[in-house]
């Protein structure tokens, strides 16, 4: 009997809370890498891309909906500028904006991948007390371009210059992510899908939930996007 009730208590603690899903959405809404890699292959000069993204990092048996929007513009054929905003964070009272540049380092040639380098910043401002955080990021993407089809493999890291503000000395300077994806870019439309490993250098915790991880580290999930080109 005691075993039965111990299990009931335990299950109560972990799974029967009404808050479960919403709580998880809220807590992980600010996970680094909230969206697919903004731009993997620079746009043509003068092209403006307006897109929306849906991050789906996994928690328990489900995934979370992290919604964002962005605008990118081809400054030249090898350099693209982007800015974005996370709408889920806004809903929670945090203005989370990002912006940066993507540059072609090596132009793709058949099976030889192109390489792009990105760098930018992510800013967070709390609407409650004005708390501010700024996280620079940089990344490298290898991409293969076959007509409208683009395959990419990306390594990216956020830099936490205020790591020392974390409680109990748990801050880390780098928060890396790794992704691989596919994009369909044809005339005025671009569709994006990317699978990402998030922060696979540290254990992630959400109270009363489990984050599917890579050997106990970080999180992961599918990230989606759709954009229009003008």
């Amino acid at each position: 009997m005691s075993e039965v009730y111990s299990m009931i208590d335990f299950v109560n603690e972990l799974f029967t809370m009404k808050l479960r899903i919403l709580f998880l959405v809220l807590l992980t809404a600010l996970l680094s890498s909230c969206a697919p890699t903004r731009v993997v292959a620079p746009l043509e000069k003068g092209v403006i891309q307006v897109g929306t993204t849906l991050g789906r990092p996994r928690v328990n048996d489900g995934s979370l909906p992290l919604v964002g929007i962005y605008v990118a513009k081809g400054l030249s054929d090898v350099k693209t500028f982007y800015v974005g905003a996370q709408l889920t964070s806004l809903y929670l009272g945090t203005i989370q904006l990002d912006g940066g540049l993507v540059k072609t380092v090596i132009t793709p040639n058949g099976m030889i991948p192109g390489v792009s380098w990105s760098y930018g910043v992510n800013s967070f401002v709390s609407s409650r007390d004005g708390a501010f955080r700024l996280y620079p990021e940089t990344g490298v993407t290898a991409y293969w371009k076959f007509g409208p089809h683009i395959l990419n493999a990306t390594a990216n890291t956020w830099v936490d210059p205020t790591w020392y503000l974390s409680d109990f000395n748990k801050g880390r300077i780098l928060s890396p992510s790794f992704g691989a994806g596919y994009r369909f870019r044809y005339k005025w439309i671009e569709l994006q899908a990317e699978y990402k490993l998030l922060n696979p250098t540290r254990e992630m915790y959400i109270p009363q939930a489990s984050i599917p991880s890579t050997q106990g580290l970080g999180g992961k999930g599918w990230y989606w996007g759709a954009a229009l080109n003008f």
């Binding site: 996970l31 929670l92 709390s126 007390d129 955080r133 974390s166 801050g171 998030l198 970080g218």
Partner: peptide
């Protein structure tokens, strides 16, 4: 704060989500 930081991996204060 640590709940926030454990779930994001960043040095974010809890005021980003709650009073």
């Amino acid at each position: 704060a640590i709940i926030m930081q454990n779930s994001t991996g960043l040095s974010l204060p809890s005021s980003m989500l709650t009073n």
